[in-house]
């Protein structure tokens, strides 16, 4: 095991095939505690597939996913969430028929200790736990400036607030590692600037490690400390933003091979 370095997520030789298509090929990555790492690549490069493997939506054909040294490959998604990985989705996936507060409370369910029967009969031990998680959720909403919407249906929020709520819901699971799938999608430059500040702030406040996918280069170059580029499921480059910006293979992948 690595000593001195504090590796939160370690992906070893991840490969996934869908029929004849190799969506992700031999993907390796280490992310240290507190790092903010970006994953970029053209559309269809397999970025979200990497996220889906890490969060247990897909089981890799081969390779392993290690969270703080523990092998979590092939675990069910809810167990991976419980072990400390939370995510947001490329196209917002809130519980639209539930209130903002309830959306955040759903993420507390995995830590619930009262048995089903005491919840069904509303026994004192459950009532106490419910009061506790409600206070915790309200506190989280307060920190993310969502308190005014607490009782609003999630589906009725403006788009920007929906994105913010999705992050709040993920934070409510109390994660060590947060995966953000295109957090700036559909945002104007001003909103993106605010989002960049917001991401840095929650990383510090919640002592998170963040791994994000993004197409908005200003965001990726502005806040990521390290960037990995993939194309057709294969890693083609890795480095700090300045190196990536000048990398010929990256430019080729984004703009097409020269001369055509």
């Amino acid at each position: 095991m690595d000593t001195g370095k504090n590796i939160v997520l370690k992906l070893e030789h991840l490969t996934i095939k869908f029929g004849g298509l190799i969506a992700v090929n031999d993907f390796c990555l280490e992310i240290e505690k507190g790092e903010l790492v970006g994953l970029i690549g053209p559309n269809g490069a397999g970025k979200t597939t990497v996220f889906n493997i890490v969060t247990g939506q897909y089981e890799p054909t081969s390779g392993t996913v290690l969270l703080e040294g523990r092998d979590i490959t092939g675990w069910r998604p809810h167990l991976i969430a419980a072990s400390g990985i939370a995510r947001t989705f490329q196209n917002v996936r809130l519980f639209t028929g539930m209130s903002v507060l309830d959306n955040v409370l759903v993420s507390q369910h995995l830590r619930l200790r009262s048995p089903f029967l005491s919840a069904a009969l509303h026994l004192p031990d459950y009532a106490r736990e419910e009061r506790h998680v409600r206070a915790k959720a309200m506190d989280l909403l307060e920190r993310l400036e969502l308190t005014p919407f607490a009782k609003e249906l999630a589906g009725n929020l403006p788009y920007g607030q929906q994105r913010r709520l999705e992050i709040a819901r993920a934070l409510s699971t109390n994660p060590k590692l947060l995966l953000l799938d295109e957090p700036a999608a559909g945002m104007n430059p001003e909103e993106t600037t605010r989002l960049m500040r917001f991401i840095c702030r929650i990383r510090d406040e919640f002592s998170l490690t963040i791994f994000l996918i993004e197409h908005d280069m200003r965001l990726v170059m502005g806040i990521c400390e390290r960037i990995r580029v993939i194309d057709y499921g294969i890693s083609i480059a890795e480095g700090v933003p300045d190196e990536i910006r000048r990398d010929s293979r990256v430019i080729a992948a984004y703009l097409g091979e020269g001369g055509e």
Binding site: H78, A81, A82, F89, L94
Partner: peptide, 8 residues
């Protein structure tokens, strides 16, 4: 899918 990802 989202429920599962949030630990349900």
């Amino acid at each position: 899918v989202a429920a599962e990802a949030m630990g349900v």
